[in-house]
């Protein structure tokens, strides 16, 4: 472990608002032992729109998200945000560079309140020094107070204000997914990766969240949307990438991609 890690403020290089940048994947490959979960995948995730990533179960979608997030190392290829190489960076540095994600299998602090779950998301924006945290200086508690107010704003935006004090683990799946999204948004990301964000929700709930995703993209965020609900993805995405057994079999506008014979074959299980 290096010593500078202690004196460095938690989030020095992450001042929002930040310029939007494109995330580029080039020849990204992941092997687990003999299994190639992701094989030579290249595409871009530009700011200002929602990029779709679809594919049958086990296609490698979550593996790709985990590689971008720095949770899994790459076997080959590289990942850049703008000009910055991210393929070797540990997860917390990827997050600090402005990449946020939700988890396919929801991961909340189950016993903490909804508000506290969202509050930790603001870590990247914290500026108070270690000394002011330890000594209880105004810089520290003012920051906590301000961030708590911003967390409440986020709860309002997602229609979750009445659950603020509720233990997050006691919510329905749909609401838990919202808490994860709020937590990810609290980091003020340039790129937001959503791994099946509307799984288990009804069409009305899904459409509500879809509107929020669309407005985030309109405001300049890059959004990567993984979803099995194909009509939902077609409605929201400007471009869709299709993975099948780790390979990218199609990329392009929704209309074109969904007519692609390879995609139809993959989805019918005959490919």
């Amino acid at each position: 472990m290096e010593w500078p890690i202690l004196w460095r403020s938690c989030a020095v290089d992450a001042a929002p608002p930040m310029p939007s940048e494109t995330l580029t994947l080039r020849h990204v490959t992941k092997r687990f032992g003999g299994v190639t979960a992701v094989s030579d995948v290249s595409f871009d995730i530009p700011p200002g729109r929602i990029t779709g990533l679809i594919g049958p179960n086990g296609a490698g979608k979550s593996t790709l998200v985990n590689m971008i997030a720095g949770v899994l190392t790459l076997s080959e290829g590289d990942i850049r945000l703008g000009s910055r190489l991210l393929s070797q960076a540990p997860a917390f540095e990827v997050a600090r560079s402005g990449i946020a994600r939700t988890f396919q299998n929801i991961r909340l602090l189950a016993e903490a309140s909804v508000l506290d779950n969202v509050l930790v998301g603001f870590h990247r924006l914290e500026r108070a020094s270690l000394a002011s945290h330890l000594l209880g200086l105004p810089a520290s508690w003012r920051e906590t107070r301000d961030l708590r107010a911003r967390a409440r704003d986020l709860l309002n935006r997602f229609g979750m204000q009445r659950y603020a004090e509720y233990p997050a683990g006691g919510l329905s799946y749909g609401h838990q997914r919202r808490v994860e999204m709020m937590r990810a948004l609290a980091t003020q990301p340039r790129l937001l990766m959503l791994d099946e964000p509307v799984a288990g929700m009804n069409d009305v709930e899904a459409a509500e969240l879809g509107d929020i995703f669309a407005s985030l993209a309109r405001d300049g965020m890059a959004v990567l949307l993984i979803e099995h609900n194909v009509p939902f993805v077609m409605r929201l995405c400007a471009e869709i990438n299709v993975l099948d057994t780790g390979r990218l079999i199609a990329s392009g506008p929704p209309g074109t991609v969904m007519r692609d014979p390879a995609v139809i074959a993959a989805y019918l299980g005959t490919g």
């Binding site: 997860a91 997050a95 988890f103 189950a110 930790v120 108070a128 945290h133 508690w141 906590t144």
Partner: peptide, 20 residues
Amino acid sequence: SGLGRAFDTVRQDETVAGSL
């Protein structure tokens, strides 16, 4: 403080902590 929130997050789920 934010340090306490970081401690709580790290204790409960290191993957989540990293993602933030």
